[in-house]
Amino acid sequence: MTLQILLNLLIAAMWMMLHDTWNMLTFAIGFVLGAIILFGMRRFFPAPFYGRKFWFLLKLGWLFSIELLVSSIVAIEQIIRPRLNIQPGVFRMQTRMKTEWELSLLANLMTLTPGSVVMEIAPEDGLMYVHAMDVPRMKKGIIRTKDKFEDVIIEVMR
């Protein structure tokens, strides 16, 4: 996969040199051309084409921005409510992530999703301790969001 990305960058730089114009647009066109060339020659590489992983990365970004928007709306709504009516608390939950990269990615994403801040991780037990703004109302939603993220992260990383 690294080899393919390097080749793609090389093709983009080559395209820029051939045109003798040094700006972002030419580089982007070269990059797209390189991706098409690599896709056409994908059976000569040992690893599968990296476009699939790239697609899931885009999906992760999309999911994440939606969740960030929703979480800000939830937090703002709780701030401007005239009387505070929340029951904060800490609860634990299981996670399927194993390696450090996956764990830190999941923790970063969870911190920006509705009503949850990751406080502590116990990787050997596969546990995460999450502080929630309103435990009785939000626990189910937080666990559902975590499952959604985990599915996409597994697609990207493994």
Binding site: L68, S72, A75, I79, L84, P88, L112, V117, H131
Partner: peptide
């Protein structure tokens, strides 16, 4: 908000956005 943890919710999410 009453304590640090709930304040950190406000700080991380809405300020970032």
């Amino acid at each position: 908000f009453p304590d640090v943890y709930t304040r950190s919710h406000a700080a991380t999410k809405s300020i970032t956005l």
